[in-house]
Every structure is written in structure tokens, then in C-alpha cells.
């Protein structure tokens, strides 16, 4: 066995050879307090311990160390038969953010089939924004497991490459999992309105309310002017949460055509919606907004009144 110059690390190394897994486990916990770079070797060693509890403990402390020093060991740990070990390894990998880990991650992705492992690797690849991640991520969009598809969407979203838009649109429209559709809808904001506008308008009719919210949000971010009418329709959605996001987006688009429906929303029973509506009317700041804002100056809800005063100052400034 290797010996270490640092006496504390050496003492831990000795404990790690104990026959008692309880003592080995405590030794792993002690590694966290070592400032020695060589402590990482012992963590990697413990990740391969025969005892599950020791491996779990090692996996729990991996994020106390610089993950770049143990990328390979962490990727291997993604395939551990214990879920706690796999989870911790996946989280530590995601924190890596070290371009040097890119190659081993891509290689591991190529060799992995387990959904948990694949999604863990994708999550780690995401912040690295590697061009080499594009093609495997596109492939993963048709994986059978929604966790994999969801992470693949994120990888592609962070890459912001125009050529991936058709695939993301397809996912946003057709994926059977609402969270995957929602993520893909959110990822479309790096496009131009010409590229994804029509798709986003369609997504305002998605079966799941959170996808509809995300679509309205993305339309607002893209300032997709052709979506005014569909957004106006969305202000009649059965859920106030969707109506609120549609109203926000209409404020961003700034079309005077939307003033009457925004005015309707400014009288709604749900105060959160009234707030959003007055905010949007203030953003548009056209004289036709004034009657609604004037009524809102006496709204029973102080947040609405606050926004009404702000909207009134915008109207006065525009006049």
C-alpha cells in the first residue's frame, strides 16, 4: 500500500484498510477534512470498496473534491449497482464544468445504455457546450426514457445551434412527456421568430398547462409579433396561470390590438391576473389603456394599485 507524507492522510489510509467496514466508512468521512490533493486517490479507492455503505459514503463526499481529478472514477460510479452511489456521481459530474472532462464524458456516453447513466452524463456535458455533444444529444431525443430526452433537450438548448431547431420543435410538439415538451419549448428562445414562431403558436394549445405557459413565455422573449391574436386567444385559457403568462407576453409585444382583451383581464377576479394585465397595459402605454388603468387605481389589491400608478406614469410620459 502507498504511504503518504501527511500524517493525517496516512492515518486515514491505514483506517481504509480495516476489516471493519464501519471504520472504513468513518475514514472516508475524514477524507473531507484533508487539504492534501492526494486525498482524491483515496476517495477513488473507496468508490471501489466492496462494501455498499463505504461506496455510498465515498459517493456522498465526491462533491467535496475537485471533480476533474476523478472524472473517470465518477463515470464508472454511474454504473454502480447502488442508486445512492449513482446519484451522487451524477451530481458531482454535473458540477464538473471542466472542459478536460469532455472527452471522457463523450466516450462514456457512447458506451452507455442505462438511462440513469446516460442522463447523468448528458447533465454533465450540458454546461461544457461541446460541439461533439450535438450528435449524441440529437440521437438521445428519441430515447425511450423521458429523463434522457429531457437532458438531451438541455444539452441542445445550451448549444444554441440553428441546425438543431427542427429536432427541438419536433420534440416540443410530439414528445409524449409534458416536462420534455416544456423544456423543449423553453429551449426555442435562442431561435428567430421566423424559425420557431409558428410552432410556439401551436404550443399555446398544448394539453398541459405548463407547456402552454412556457410557450407564451418564449413568444414574449422572442417578441414574435405574429402571435398577437393567438396570445389574445390564450387570455381565455381555462387556467389563470396560462392567462397570466399570455398577458405578460402581450405586454412585451406591445400591440395596441390587444388593449381590449387586456382590459378584460384587468377586471378579472384573480388578482394575479389583474396585476399582469395592468403591467401589460402600462408597457403598451397607449391612450386607450388609460380607462382601464384609471379603474385599477382603486383596485382592492395594493399590488394592482402600485402597478396602476406606475402604468399611469408611463401613460403620462407617453402623452
Amino acid at each position: 500500500m502507498k504511504t503518504y507524507d501527511d500524517p493525517e492522510l496516512q492515518a486515514i489510509a491505514v483506517k481504509l484498510t480495516s476489516d471493519d467496514p464501519g471504520i472504513r466508512r468513518v475514514a472516508v468521512m475524514d477524507l473531507v477534512d484533508s487539504g492534501e490533493p492526494e486525498a482524491v486517490e483515496l476517495v477513488i479507492h473507496a468508490l471501489n470498496d466492496p462494501d455498499t455503505n463505504v461506496r455510498q459514503e465515498a459517493a456522498k463526499v465526491v462533491d467535496e473534491f475537485e471533480a476533474a481529478d476523478m472524472a473517470d472514477a465518477l463515470i464508472a460510479a454511474l454504473g454502480d449497482n447502488d442508486e445512492v452511489v449513482r446519484n451522487s456521481a451524477a451530481h458531482a459530474l454535473a458540477d464538473l464544468k471542466d472542459p478536460a472532462a469532455g472527452e471522457p464524458l463523450l466516450k462514456a456516453l457512447d458506451n452507455s445504455t442505462d438511462a440513469f447513466v446516460v442522463s447523468g452524463i448528458l447533465r454533465a456535458l450540458k454546461p461544457l457546450r461541446l460541439a461533439g455533444a450535438q450528435s449524441p444529444a440529437l440521437k438521445c431525443l428519441s430515447d425511450g426514457d423521458p429523463r434522457v430526452r429531457r437532458e438531451a433537450v438541455a444539452v441542445l438548448g445550451w448549444l444554441k445551434q440553428t441546425e438543431n431547431l427542427p429536432a427541438l420543435v419536433e420534440t416540443a410538439q410530439r414528445d409524449e412527456d409534458p416536462e420534455v415538451r416544456r423544456a423543449a419549448t423553453g429551449a426555442l428562445v435562442y431561435a428567430s421568430p421566423q424559425q420557431v414562431g409558428q410552432a410556439l403558436i401551436g404550443l399555446l394549445q398544448d394539453g398541459h398547462w405548463q407547456v402552454r405557459c412556457e410557450a407564451a413565455n418564449s413568444i414574449g422573449k422572442l417578441n414574435h409579433q405574429a402571435a398577437v391574436q393567438p396570445l389574445m386567444d390564450a387570455t381565455k385559457d381555462q387556467l389563470w396561470q396560462v392567462r397570466e403568462k399570455a398577458v405578460d407576453a402581450l405586454g412585451k409585444l406591445g400591440s395596441t390590438d390587444s388593449i381590449p382583451v387586456l382590459g378584460e383581464c384587468s377586471k378579472d377576479a384573480m388578482s394575479n391576473l389583474r396585476k399582469a394585465a395592468i403591467g401589460a397595459l402600462g408597457a403598451i402605454a397607449h391612450s386607450d389603456c388609460r380607462p382601464f388603468v384609471e379603474i385599477a387605481m382603486d383596485d382592492p389589491d395594493p399590488d394592482v394599485r402600485k402597478l396602476a400608478r406606475w402604468a399611469m406614469s408611463k401613460l403620462d410620459a407617453a402623452a
Binding site: 483506517k15 471493519d20 464501519g22 471504520i23 466508512r25 468513518v26 468521512m29
Partner: peptide, 9 residues
């Protein structure tokens, strides 16, 4: 509890 094995977490 494994304090008897040296754990003081």
C-alpha cells in the same frame, strides 16, 4: 449511531 467507530459528523 456509529460514534463508537470514530464518527463525529
Amino acid at each position: 449511531c456509529i460514534a463508537d467507530k470514530g464518527c463525529t459528523v
